[in-house]
Each structure stands twice: as C-alpha cells, then as structure tokens.
Design a protein around this nucleic acid. Structure first.
Length: 238
DNA sequence: TTCCAGGCTC
DNA sequence: GAGCCCGGAA
C-alpha cells in the first residue's frame, strides 16, 4: 500500500468519517449554493468565522443567489464582515451570482449538472476559474462538495503535511499535487471529499503553522526517521 | 513571486 | 500588536 493510502486509512481510523461539507443552514443540511458561498468566504479565513458570516446572512434572510446578487455591495460586506476582508468577499460573491445568472439562469444546480463526469467537471471548472475571485481551490471545493465532481482540492494544509513528511516534489504546481493524490486514492469523489476533510483536520489540529504538534498526530508514524522536515530556524517542533 | 485584505486570536 | 486564516490577482 502506498504511503498516501496508508495516511488516508490512518486518518480515517483516527477521526472517522468527517461528513463534509460542514453544514450551517437552519435544517442542518448545506445546499449547493451555501457550499459555494462558504467556499468563497473561507478563503484565507478560519471556518469558524465563516459560520458567523453565514449566520448573519441567514439572520437577514439573504442567502439566496438572487438576494446576494441584488444586495447593495456595502450591505453585503457588512453582513459577511466576520469572514475576513469584507469588500473583497462581497465583490467575489456577487461576481459568482452574476456568473450564475448569466451562464446558468441563476441556478447553481444547472452549473453542477453532470459534473460527476470528469470531462464535464473540467469544463465547468474552467468556466468557474473565469469568475473573478474563484481560483483553483475554490472551484474544486465547489464542484467536489456541492456537485460530487471527481476533483481533488489542494490547499495550504495539504502542502504543509506533504512537505513535512517529504512526500512532495518541492514546488509542485496545484494540478500536479491534485493528480498526485488522485492517482494514489480510489477513483471516487466521495473518497476525495473525505480525504480533503481529514487532511484539513489534521492540519488544524496537528500540522499547524508555524510549528507542528506531532504529539498524538495520526500521521506521526509516517514521518521520516528524523521527524518532520522543517524549514527555517523558526520552525521547530514543540 | 509578490502583494493584497481585514477580522480574529493570543 | 503580530501573525494566523481551508487564496486570488497582478
């Protein structure tokens, strides 16, 4: 078994199924649009603060594509203030609503239709990347978690785990990292979704910045003999 | 690669 | 106050 498969299994054994996407709606079930909103809001921001922003959108009864699209920019910014840079994220959310209205009749379900097929997913991904404020990670998160597309999300946590374990070619591009993981895991969107969620959790709890907390980490047994590979004098364990 | 953006945490 | 946060644009 590859190291990657072993890592996935150890994380899954330790943490159990994560059941992402983290739901935040009234009924506890995140719909596709809410996932997309969350994916934009979480950029460079902790998830906890995203939940606050989503809650305030719900409080204002302003969660729909139409509502967000029609809202005055400043008002939207004020509502999502807790999720990092509000002006930027208000602009990005409205760029996304405009895109959906123009290209998919305002329906994210139309955007996501058929993305279980990898070729369709790639086309939609390219379209999403044309939206200002939607980069590779955000596009993949939306397509994977809202649409079940067989795409792998690459984020800073994943890169950090890989670097410290010596699994990566230094400087690998986004798509190269995604392919690296996809080729070593079962070709199943549900597994990709689970793997990303597990890696995020281990990143939050153990593979932190600037220094890791390897004590009790489910991946500790997979470290190089000398411990985590660290860069720079500031980065020390414990 | 560098710059950006801003609330939040410690 | 410094640095972190499930990035993106230039």
């Amino acid at each position: 078994m590859s190291t990657i498969r072993r890592a996935y299994r150890q994380l899954h054994d330790a943490y159990g199924p994560q059941g992402w996407w983290p739901a935040a709606t009234r009924d506890g079930v995140a719909d596709a649009w809410e996932i997309a909103v969350g994916a934009v809001l979480v950029q460079h921001t902790s998830w906890k603060n995203v939940l606050r922003a989503i809650a305030s959108l719900e409080q204002a009864d302003a969660t729909s594509v139409a509502a967000i699209g029609a809202m005055e920019r400043d008002r939207l910014a004020a509502l999502i203030r807790s999720a990092g840079p509000p002006r930027v994220k208000a602009e990005r959310l409205q760029a996304l609503t405009a895109f959906l209205v123009e290209e998919f009749n305002g329906s994210i379900d139309s955007l996501l239709e058929g993305v279980e097929d990898r070729r369709v997913a790639q086309r939609r991904r390219t379209q999403l990347l044309g939206v200002r404020g939607v980069g590779p990670e955000t596009a993949d998160a939306i397509l994977l978690y809202a649409g079940g597309a067989p795409l792998f999300v690459v984020d800073a946590y994943k890169r950090r785990v890989m670097r410290r374990h010596g699994w990566d070619d230094a400087g690998a591009k986004y798509d190269e990292v995604a392919t690296f993981w996809r080729r070593r895991l079962p070709a199943d969107a549900a597994v990709y979704a689970e793997a990303h969620a597990l890696l995020v959790r281990v990143g939050v709890e153990h593979c932190r910045s600037p220094r890791p907390r390897c004590e009790g980490c489910p991946l500790q047994s997979l470290l190089p003999p000398g411990g985590p590979l660290l860069e720079g004098v500031a980065e020390k364990t414990e």
